[in-house]
């Protein structure tokens, strides 16, 4: 049997809101080490990789490895019924055809249970090699969200170029062009506002803004986003979920 209790149920709500427009359905894989998901969007241009560690849950039990197929829109409908301060417990029997979500309000006055039907989903997993990237950039997640939103009003694609002092986002379209530069700034007073660049090689790659805007829906999960770039490789856009795990997005370059 699988049973996991997340005291901060809002985390799960935020994860699902961040990925539900990108992927339609996915298998959630559970084993001893945690709860994970890997899925590509329908055009196979981007990939979502979620991992929530077992020790990030208040209680975690998984007797056998299980894979639970869910339609994200349906999962989202159910999780929207959980309060933001609720604890969420997920339960499923081995070989069961449903997963139960139990929501508990902070004072335990309200307990609700929702069962979601599981489905069989054929999923292809990709092997993502551990790579050393040419450049790793850590920027405030709200800043990244604003940049990709603003640039999408001008163009369809963005060139991200990283040098040792700054990261530059550039686009152009019918009405004109734009570029936004963020300088390295290791703010000690306000660490949440810092921009940090770790570079082996200057790099410049172009990506579709539509996908980056979709990834930015994960902003509420983390104060920072980490971009990992290498020449001719998909970019990694990574949100670290404090004490629990990570939500990573991969996007093939143009």
């Amino acid at each position: 049997m699988f049973e996991a209790r997340l005291a901060q149920g809002a985390l799960l709500k935020k994860v699902v809101e961040a990925i539900k427009d990108l992927i339609e359905d996915a298998n959630f894989d559970c084993n001893n080490s945690g709860f994970s998901l890997q899925a590509m969007d329908s055009s196979h241009v981007s990939l979502v990789a979620l991992s929530l560690r077992a020790d990030g849950f208040e209680h975690y039990r998984c007797d056998r490895n299980i894979s639970m197929g869910m339609k994200l829109a349906n999962l989202s409908k159910i999780l929207k019924c959980a309060g933001n301060d609720d604890a969420i417990t997920m339960k499923s029997e081995d070989n069961g055809d449903t997963i139960t979500f139990m929501f508990e309000s902070p004072n335990q006055e309200r307990l609700s249970e929702f069962d979601l039907k599981l489905m069989d989903i054929d999923s292809e997993h990709l092997g993502i090699p551990e790579a050393e990237y040419d450049a790793t950039v850590k920027v405030p997640s709200s800043e990244f969200q604003r940049i990709v939103k603003d640039l999408a009003s001008i163009g369809d694609t963005v060139e991200i170029s990283v040098t040792k002092d700054a990261v530059k986002f550039s686009t152009s379209g019918d009405i004109g062009s734009a570029n936004i530069m963020c300088r390295q700034n290791k703010s000690v007073d306000k660490p949440e506002e810092s921009t940090e660049i770790d570079i082996n090689e200057p790099v410049a790659l172009t990506f579709a803004l539509r996908y980056l805007n979709s990834f930015a829906k994960a902003t509420p999960l983390s104060p920072h986003v980490v971009l990992k770039l290498s020449k001719d490789l998909p970019v990694v856009v990574e949100y670290h979920i404090p004490d629990v795990g990570r939500l990573g997005f991969y996007l093939a370059p143009k």
């Binding site: 890997q38 590509m40 055009s43 196979h44 241009v45 981007s46 990939l47 292809e124 997993h125 990709l126 092997g127 993502i128 090699p129 694609t157 172009t206 579709a208 490789l233 998909p234 991969y250 093939a252 370059p253 143009k254």
Partner: peptide, 14 residues
């Protein structure tokens, strides 16, 4: 306009 690659051209099956 630059073409959009698919992820399979970068990563193999797991």
């Amino acid at each position: 306009k630059a073409s959009q690659g698919r992820l399979e051209s970068f990563f193999g099956p797991a």
